[in-house]
Simulated scan of single mutants.
Amino acid sequence: MNEIIAALKAALVAAGLRAYDTTVPSGTTVQYPYVLLWSSPGRMTSVSLAGQRTALDDTFGATTVGITPEQVRLAAKRARAVMDGLEPGVLAGQHVDEVRLFDSRPIAPDRDFPLVGGSYPMTGVDIYRVSSTPA
């Protein structure tokens, strides 16, 4: 999953979006909007004749963070345009299939991180499906 998340992050950055793996790095000056990519370590499913799990079938999340709901919607739309349908190709010996938007959660305030002035950043979460097989 590390290689897949890195490829997705690079694609988002190339499209002009701020993107981070799981969290904003310590010491970074936060600028809104941005996208956090997060995942499991990678759910391997198919078992080969040798008894090894070789195929990945998993999901990852993209949390878009902004000051307003409108900012989240616009940034999430841009992120979707980059990731939904993306075909990363071969990464670390695995052929990664087309990435597909799987689910989306309502935009909500993140009350764990109050902003100056008493408001809260808004977040929207999209869930994508990703799979890969040995190349």
Score class of each variant (00 low, 15 high):
11 A>I: 04
32 Y>C: 08
14 A>M: 02
79 A>Y: 09
124 G>V: 05
27 G>Q: 02
39 S>I: 02
12 L>G: 05
100 R>M: 14
58 D>C: 01
108 A>T: 14
89 G>L: 03
106 P>G: 08
16 G>Y: 08
86 L>N: 04
110 D>G: 04
9 K>W: 03
115 L>H: 10
27 G>Y: 03
26 S>P: 06
38 W>Y: 14
65 V>Q: 04
76 A>F: 02
116 V>T: 12
108 A>K: 14
39 S>C: 09
112 D>M: 10
134 P>A: 10
23 T>R: 14
23 T>S: 11
133 T>V: 15
64 T>E: 03
14 A>D: 14
54 T>H: 04
26 S>R: 13
68 T>K: 03
54 T>R: 12
94 Q>G: 02
46 S>W: 09
44 M>W: 15
64 T>V: 15
111 R>E: 14
17 L>I: 11
107 I>R: 03
82 V>W: 05
60 F>L: 13
43 R>K: 13
26 S>G: 07
10 A>W: 04
60 F>M: 10
83 M>D: 01
48 S>W: 01
23 T>M: 13
81 A>M: 07
66 G>K: 07
132 S>Y: 09
26 S>N: 10
64 T>M: 03
99 V>K: 00
130 V>W: 01
75 A>F: 02
54 T>P: 01
36 L>D: 09
35 V>S: 12
70 E>F: 10
110 D>A: 12
19 A>E: 10
65 V>E: 05
37 L>E: 07
115 L>M: 15
32 Y>W: 13
105 R>C: 01
43 R>E: 13
105 R>N: 08
10 A>S: 14
19 A>M: 09
1 M>R: 10
56 L>E: 04
81 A>T: 12
78 R>D: 14
104 S>T: 15
69 P>L: 02
15 A>H: 04
18 R>F: 08
1 M>D: 07
131 S>G: 15
34 Y>K: 09
2 N>C: 00
97 D>V: 01
42 G>P: 05
10 A>P: 03
78 R>I: 07
26 S>T: 13
65 V>I: 13
131 S>H: 11
7 A>Y: 04
24 V>S: 08
15 A>W: 05
4 I>D: 06
56 L>S: 06
85 G>T: 08
9 K>R: 15
20 Y>R: 09
98 E>R: 15
49 L>H: 08
129 R>E: 11
32 Y>Q: 09
64 T>N: 02
106 P>E: 13
47 V>F: 01
69 P>A: 12
6 A>I: 03
121 P>F: 06
109 P>G: 11
55 A>Y: 04
123 T>C: 10
33 P>M: 08
95 H>D: 11
49 L>G: 15
38 W>F: 15
13 V>Q: 13
31 Q>P: 00
19 A>N: 12
5 I>H: 06
109 P>M: 11
100 R>T: 14
132 S>M: 10
95 H>P: 00
58 D>H: 00
6 A>F: 05
61 G>C: 05
17 L>M: 15
59 T>F: 03
32 Y>P: 06
99 V>E: 02
100 R>Y: 04
40 S>T: 15
40 S>I: 02
94 Q>R: 15
50 A>T: 13
83 M>L: 15
92 A>W: 00
15 A>L: 08
45 T>F: 02
98 E>S: 13
116 V>C: 00
78 R>K: 14
